[in-house]
Design a protein around this nucleic acid. Structure first.
Lengths: 299, 299
DNA sequence: TATATGCCATTCATATATGAATGATCAGAG
DNA sequence: CTCTGATCATTCATATATGAATGGCATATA
């Protein structure tokens, strides 16, 4: 049936899918547009189905192409993981490492830690990717991930870093001149900051047993970083990691104090490269110390 | 650092790793030995490290190459999945489907079911792979898997087929002329058939609360198929799926009757190709009917 | 000891894939 | 309407990768 498709063709396919045109894809892969066109034509011939409709302003994918897309991405993830694994020496602390974390983690927690890593191992090249699912590690789109929940995938190297509290916080400037928040009912009439789309966290948002729904929020954002920034800017009352709450005022600590676990994940295939183990251990240690710091220490 | 490695080189790398020599790898990929040699040399140059030691009778992998191996396999799995997904039309019931199952399942349960599928959809090409881990589906080494335990991976399409019993069985020819087995203690002195290496099933092997250990087995095999064949050949007493126990005598049904669940798994990326959905549903239905047949019906 | 069969490296003529240049087409801006 | 900036398809000279053939080298086999 289908035989011996050159893997480079898949690469060109993916590039065209992402870039939207032969020319743009060619630029990205540093090959010429005619070559790119030939690759796609060859691939279509090999697979026996047409993958793109040629239009004056690019190639638009057929349904068949869309169906193949996730597989092509998996291929790219695996190729990326291989290149990262091959970068640097066998046991040397050099080469690329891709770390995935949530926005807040990447922006607020990791930078000083990464700084320390880079100082200690100057040969390392760190890539920070923002994402929220363990899938990244399973799919090898990232080597190591920091997550705020236990892994839902078996077969991953996982370390529980520790637990910390979430809390309701507001900036003093917001609270000034507004009715005090002393009981759960006092939240009515206040500006609440929360998620836009339902998330894992959504269920956590219960104050004194009552669930805060989407409509109760005066400011909605799916970016936890934007939420944090909004709280700090005095936009209203929102949820924030206790260890990150410096300068903010905690509200209703008795009514809202859900605990969150921090986990570190790694793909088992990376254990054979010692630098991943070292970075994993370094991160686990540094994150544990971060949690144990101000407001943490719940584990 | 490392830039723009042609994915075909990874393919050659994998072929050499598996074949053990440039010539053999070349034959497998239908390219010449000099070309294969050039590919490896190019890859080594691109990755900046030597991958093989050239010996008179082949290429032996360095540690670096061994470390890259799992990644290369992931790449091959993804490429295979892509080709399989691309084989056949978009919504047509034709093309390749790879089904993973344990030995016993593949040999005893699936054949008539697969026969039915092939009759119904003549365009389908079925590949039966023997394996025991959900990993296969997660890694996309198989499209659909039949498993005897709930999935340990989230993010898989999973259907619980039903439960059935395991039991202790022996062939009448074995039992003839031997002391009868009426209580758990009677097993002493009998020939037991069991696993060689510790497995998930090992823990199940408890008779009247007492665990049967490795040393108690007179015949050990990690192949469940070999065990079944041994029981049927009258080698001794062993564990067998109730639905497969035709012609055998059940022993100590009150003391040993652990329940096992059968699950069907599929990678979510395949849902967009309708033939995988259809085959999934067909398998789920046929397996459920198999279980509900003789000796099953525990769900 | 001679012979056969693996293997890899090298060479060199050839087939193949590539890129620059060109032309055609379309959409949007002035 | 015209011009600009995208796009893709085609052409053709060139660079590149390929395979057949060869030689050298080990290890089995008789």
């Amino acid at each position: 049936m289908i035989r011996d498709v050159d893997w480079s063709l898949y690469r060109s396919f993916l590039a065209v899918m992402e870039a939207g045109s032969l020319s743009a894809a060619g630029r990205r892969l540093r090959i010429s547009q005619p070559t790119m066109g030939r690759h796609i034509r060859t691939l279509e011939a090999a697979l026996g189905q047409s993958l793109f409709l040629r239009t004056p302003d690019g190639l638009s994918p057929t349904d068949a192409a869309l169906a193949l897309m996730p597989h092509a991405e998996a291929l790219a993830d695996a190729a990326g993981a291989l290149t990262r694994a091959a970068s640097g020496g066998r046991d040397a602390m050099e080469g690329n490492i891709r770390i995935a974390a949530s926005e807040v983690t990447a922006a607020e927690i990791l930078p000083p830690i990464v700084r320390g890593m880079m100082d200690r191992w100057p040969g390392l090249v760190i890539e920070l990717a923002v994402s929220n699912s363990d899938e990244d590690v399973m799919r090898r789109a990232a080597d190591i991930a920091v997550r705020m929940a236990p892994p839902r995938q078996d077969a991953l190297v996982a370390a529980r870093i520790g637990g910390f509290e979430l809390g309701l916080y507001a900036h003093p400037a917001y609270l000034r001149g507004r009715p005090p928040v002393e009981r759960a009912e006092d939240l009515r009439g206040h500006r609440l900051i929360g998620f836009d789309r339902p998330f894992a966290y959504t269920d956590l948002f219960r104050v004194a047993g009552k669930r805060i729904a989407r409509d109760d929020f005066a400011l909605r954002s799916d970016s936890d970083m934007a939420q944090l920034a909004a709280i700090r800017a005095g936009c209203g009352i929102g949820v924030c990691h206790a260890p990150l709450s410096g300068g903010l005022v905690r509200l209703l600590p008795a009514d809202f104090a859900p605990e969150v676990e921090m986990w570190l994940l790694m793909h088992p295939d990376l254990r054979s490269l010692s630098r991943f183990d070292h970075v994993f251990a370094y991160l686990a240690d540094a994150l544990a110390r971060h949690i144990a710091g101000p407001g943490g220490a719940a584990s």
